[in-house]
Design a protein around this nucleic acid. Structure first.
Ligand SMILES: [Mn+2]
Ligand SMILES: [Mn+2]
Ligand SMILES: [Zn+2]
Ligand SMILES: [Zn+2]
Lengths: 138, 138
DNA sequence: ACAAAGATACAACATTGTTGCGTTTAACAA
DNA sequence: TTGTTAAACGCAACAATGTTGTATCTTTGT
């Protein structure tokens, strides 16, 4: 499905900023920070605040998920599975390279299961393994 | 062992700020943010920057570990096991309540195991489950 | 008690993220 | 296609978290 229809499907109006952001994230295995994305858009004059709002809207719509790196900075990646408005289920781990600072989504290779104490109710999770990626280890 | 000797054992000089911070974290099952700790010290005039540096020094010394909450804010808790200078091994999960904002260390109840892609080398991890804690769910 | 090394406190700054509001743009119906 | 309305944008101002530089004070070891 093309970007325009993805947005429409989620009830998001189709604007140039949103299309740009969607295209920037589409097909990537990495999650990008605001700084990363502003770099990508440096020729296209993407407003900093608009970018924040687009990503927030995307997250609420279940289009992207947010991961916090060990420095406290948010990274965003498109959801692969059928996340919906207010109901994410991308409970996978991430790998953040301390050398190249790439944030990898480990959709397939990570298996997470938690035993929570009685009475605790899970809404979501933020899992980031940090270290050195394959390229930077070699 | 008392606070003074714990500091000495790690090669940290014994100062009033460090004793205060150590005592504030000691015996707690929760990880505290800078804001939390400043609250605790409100009568004792703990300098904000000193607090940052004390916690950084403690972390490097393997005395405390740092957890990042889903808002990107750092929380600190004393290490329970034998972490050393530059070598932490507190690979446990945490639970952050979206209502009371407490950050629980799940030392005992969480079991974490990850299958990383070939070539990736793990140095540590930040795992935070968020939702509502027992008290706030009731 | 003294000298050297290290910790503290204050100011200045950086980065990340939020809020308010006037202007522009997209959606939808006439 | 055009007009109306609601939403998104862009700019400024602000807030929160965290870092760096430096002069002063405290701790440590002699
Ligand atoms: Mn992901
Ligand atoms: Mn912990
Ligand atoms: Zn790397
Ligand atoms: Zn709670």
């Amino acid at each position: 499905m093309d970007a325009t229809n993805v947005l429409k499907e989620r009830g998001l109006s189709v604007t140039s900023s949103r299309l740009q952001v969607y295209e920037a994230l589409h097909g990537e295995a990495l999650a990008f920070s605001h700084a990363d994305l502003e770099q990508k858009f440096k020729r296209k004059k993407m407003d900093r605040i608009t970018l924040y709002r687009v990503l927030n809207d995307f997250e609420e719509a279940g289009l992207v998920h947010k991961v916090i790196d060990p420095g406290g900075v948010a990274h965003f990646a498109l959801c692969k599975d059928g996340c919906l408005h207010g109901h994410h289920h991308d409970h996978h781990a991430h790998f953040n390279c301390q050398r190249c600072h790439k944030m990898f989504c480990l959709d397939t290779d990570s298996q997470l299961s938690f035993k929570l104490p009685r009475g605790f109710k899970i809404a979501g999770l933020n899992t980031v393994i940090y270290g050195t990626c394959k390229t930077c280890s070699a």
